[in-house]
Amino acid sequence: MTTVLVADDDADVRDVVVFKLEQSGYDVLVAEDGATALAMARDAMPDIAVLDVMMPRMTGLDVCRELRAAEATAAIPVILLTARAQESDVEGGFDWGADDYLTKPFSPRELVSRVRAVLARSRR
């Protein structure tokens, strides 16, 4: 079974994403802030992480960077969720090694297809 780590401090977004991913047959781990997300990723080694950029206790960008920095977690693909459609942000996201990003407002269906696509790419 494929495990997805979802981290977002907005309960609405979190619940919708979790529901959608579970409906699509994934196992979902949930975190409400960046530091928890990082700890969970290290413990549970999910197959992919969906991270909000602006989170308390650690931004999604920082989590992403930390994941990349450690050998064990470096291969976990990351999709960033950002409220800013600003170029610099997106650029920054890729700088930290994110595999894909989605801007909010987001489409739940699109999110699932991105998760699928990134997973397929990383398994090749």
Binding site: D10, D12, V13, V16, K104, P105, F106, S107, P108, R109, E110
Partner: peptide, 11 residues
């Protein structure tokens, strides 16, 4: 509030 967070058919 949900309206501002999603788009597409969800919206």
């Amino acid at each position: 509030a949900m309206l501002g967070k999603v788009r597409g058919e969800a919206r």
